[in-house]
Simulated assay, not measured.
Amino acid sequence: MNQADATIAGLVRPALPQIARAVDAIADRLASGGRLHYFGAGTSGALAAVDAMECPGTFGVAADLVTAHTCMGPDEDDAKAGHAAATAVAAGDAAVGVSASGATPFTVAALEATSGLRVAVVCASGSPLAAVAQVAIEVPTGPEVVAGSTRLKAGTAQKMVLNMLSTGAFARLGYVFRGRMVGMVPENAKLRARAAGILVDLAGVSAVEAERALAAAGAEVRVALVMLRLDLDAGEARRRLSGATLSDLLE
C-alpha cells in the first residue's frame, strides 16, 4: 500500500494546469460574493465534507461559504437527489463534483444541473462527470491494492486535489500570507499559541506584544498583524483591510 500511495503525487502532477485553472475560477467566484459547493458520494463525499468542514477554522471564513452535499449507499444511484441538491448552487457560485469513477449518478446529475461554475475531480479518464464540467481535473490512479476500494489511491489523490483547490483559492483571496494561516480562528489554547507565533514571526515582536495585539484585535490575526506592522489601532487596521489584502498593505 505504501508503494502504491507513493505514486500519487506523480499522478496528480500532470493535472496541475487544470487545478490552477480551477483555483483561479473558484477564487474569482468567491471574490464576487459566491460560495463553493462540493458534491460527492461515499468516500468522495466524505473527503469533500472534510475539506468543507476545515475551511472556517483554517481560513476564518463563514461556516456556510464552503458546503458539501453528500450521500452514501443506495442514494449514490439517485440522480433525482443530485438534481435536487444542485438547486443550492446560485449562478455566481462554484460547484465541484468529486468521484473516483466519474460515473456516480448522484454526483454527475448534481454537477450537470448546477447553474454556477462546474469543476470535476475524477480518478479516471473520459468520464461522464468530466464531460459535464467546465474544468475537468482527471487523475487516473489505476487499480487499487484492494480491488475496487477507491478510498485508497483514488481517495489519496482526491484529498491532494481538494487541498489545493480550497487552499489555493483562499490564498489568492488573502487568507494566507507568507505561508501562514493568517485567517485562522484561534478558538482554543493550541490555536491561540499558533496565532501569537505567527505574529512573532511576521511582525518581529515578543510573545507578550503579540498576545496584547491579538486581544486588541478581537483575536483577528490579520488585524493584529497590520496593527503591529503599521503602528495602527484596531479600528484603522480593520478599515484598511476592508479593501485590501495583507500583501497589498505590507509588501
Rank of each mutant, 00 (worst) to 15 (best):
M1K: 08
A4Q: 04
A4K: 02
T7E: 12
T7G: 04
A9R: 03
G10K: 04
P14F: 06
A15R: 10
A15W: 02
A15C: 09
L16Y: 02
I19A: 06
I19T: 05
A22C: 02
D24I: 02
A25E: 00
A27G: 11
D28Y: 02
R29Q: 04
L30D: 08
A31E: 02
S32P: 10
G33A: 09
G34P: 13
H37V: 00
Y38V: 06
G40Q: 01
G40I: 00
A41P: 12
A41E: 08
G42C: 07
G42T: 12
T43K: 04
G45E: 04
A46L: 14
A48C: 11
A48K: 01
A49N: 07
A49F: 03
V50P: 00
V50T: 11
D51K: 07
M53F: 09
M53N: 07
C55F: 02
P56V: 15
P56K: 12
P56S: 15
G57A: 15
T58W: 11
T58D: 10
F59L: 14
G60S: 14
G60K: 14
A63K: 09
L65H: 08
L65A: 11
T67L: 14
A68F: 04
A68I: 07
H69A: 10
H69V: 05
H69G: 10
H69L: 15
T70W: 01
T70V: 15
M72F: 08
P74G: 14
P74R: 09
D75V: 08
E76W: 04
D77W: 03
D78R: 09
K80L: 15
G82C: 12
A84M: 12
A84V: 05
